[in-house]
Design a protein around this nucleic acid. Sequence first.
DNA 1: CTGTTAGCGCCTTCAG
DNA 2: CTGAAGGCGCTAACAG
Lengths: 330, 330
Amino acid sequence: MAHATIRDVARAANVSIATVSRALNGHGNVRANLREHVQSVAAALGYVPHTGARSLSLARTNAIGVMLPDLHGEFYSEALRGIDAEASARGLQLLLSNMHGDQRGTETLRFMRGRVDALIIMAPDIDPERLLAHLPASLPTVLISCPDVSADHPQFRIDNVAAADAMVEHLVASGRRRIVHLSGPRGNRDAEERIAGYSAAMTRHGLSPRVLTGDFEEESGTAAAQALLGDTERADALFAANDMMAIGALVVFQRAGLSVPEDIAVAGFDDIPLARFVTPALTTMRVGIAEIGAEAVSRAAAILAGESDTEIRWVAPQIKARASTIGGAA
Amino acid sequence: MAHATIRDVARAANVSIATVSRALNGHGNVRANLREHVQSVAAALGYVPHTGARSLSLARTNAIGVMLPDLHGEFYSEALRGIDAEASARGLQLLLSNMHGDQRGTETLRFMRGRVDALIIMAPDIDPERLLAHLPASLPTVLISCPDVSADHPQFRIDNVAAADAMVEHLVASGRRRIVHLSGPRGNRDAEERIAGYSAAMTRHGLSPRVLTGDFEEESGTAAAQALLGDTERADALFAANDMMAIGALVVFQRAGLSVPEDIAVAGFDDIPLARFVTPALTTMRVGIAEIGAEAVSRAAAILAGESDTEIRWVAPQIKARASTIGGAA
DNA sequence: CTGTTAGCGCCTTCAG
DNA sequence: CTGAAGGCGCTAACAG
């Protein structure tokens, strides 16, 4: 048999459903012993309120939707950690989903309608305009590292250009000249901006940029490293647009008998937890994605509380110089 | 202004809401051009169905709830990967939540009522009986590595006893005698069972078991390793109940000048992605948690489709012997 | 304090 | 093929 509803409780307790609702939601205006009676009847019946129905009538779900390119993986897992911590602290539930590509993304987003009070979207490679077209404009939406949008949404933007530039500076300062950049996929905002920062810095130093295109996956780091090994005049530094590609390359270089950083320096981007465990520890740019995630939840909550927020907040990554570029020290 | 509802569409299209519903949900019995008219009006109004209301009237949410001890971290992130892949393939949405302790856990579970069609719970340290008390018995619930329950739920159980036993065999075979076990927290099912398997194997070989109690976090591995370093007759192998603790210990041993595995072998449990990246690569037991997650979704879906399933399915971890216990080879 | 009455947004019989 | 009406489970005025 189906589950007990508020009506069943009301009948069993000989009161109206309104009284049950008030008693169970602690609305004060119920006689103390009646309240207890209702509570015990509810417990006896194993009554559990139907939160779906509840949020329909309250027009409030107490949940926020989160849309990430991936749910797993070191980087997004970190983002999730921050989001989860903050949401939990605020008593908000999370409706999580990954993109699974553009098509599936809009479908998922439609699903969120009526189930969440606000949205956090991280989509470096999908035009959020298209995504949001399927959603009520009234739904507060925080964007993280998304392509430009015309609508006034609160946003987080990572200063990829400056960060990539800084990494090149670091490599040049440690004597590298033939610095190759392994980029993320074309069309991805973060990837494009890192290429731009890299190229600008190289040019400024009179060095010629050389970009290999990857896809942010470990395997493309592996492939890039193998390609580099075949060169006659080998690069003396590889700067990958994320850590997983850098690590993939690191392994290949070492397996081929090169020593890192003596023969070739390797640097990544993101500072995923794994970065400090590989040998040698990976030099990278710390983005602090967990903090961004947490703050995104706070901003969403603030909007729900009535505040308005259309600010673009810039995040400046910090360099983490480790052994993979500065042999000797760690 | 609020978002358009089905009523707004009906009014604008000069039809009844029933017709709008039928037209938009592809119910065949609508004149072709009327259907198109409705669709275009809906599009013009930017109408997006309110899935919350929809599932209330359908008594079907198309979502499944997932409850994990943590959402981040290497192990649960892997579990999520499997769950997500399968759910996505079946067009199911995911409502994810972590436990945040017992109290918060039941609260979250109540939240799930009315929002999901089924539940997947992984809770090695919480009595699910207590958890499920707050939920309708009619909600299909798949349990992964939970303490025993009386109710007939489909379950996955990891054969931790046999796996821990096998790991001890491996270490003994490679000449180790003073094998210390660093366990997970007391009261955690997986932890207890691994202790049992370890102890049984040690005793069988006439070796004396020695168990240090950890908590599955990297720091407790660090601490345990430091404690071991102070011993007069040092252990020659450390078998940690999960990979993160093993890795924490690995780092400490090496930093103290010991070489692994020559001076001391180190083994973990889980085979998280990180395990193969540390130096030396970590010997561990592969649980295949992603596969379990995917299968859990399938079982939940099958139950929703009407099948009955109260089977306890056993999962046998596989040993992954790597350089941290068998120096030389990898 | 408590019961009655409308909905929240949608779907689905039941008539026409 | 289409419209009217009832209901999913719950909450919030509005009366008593």
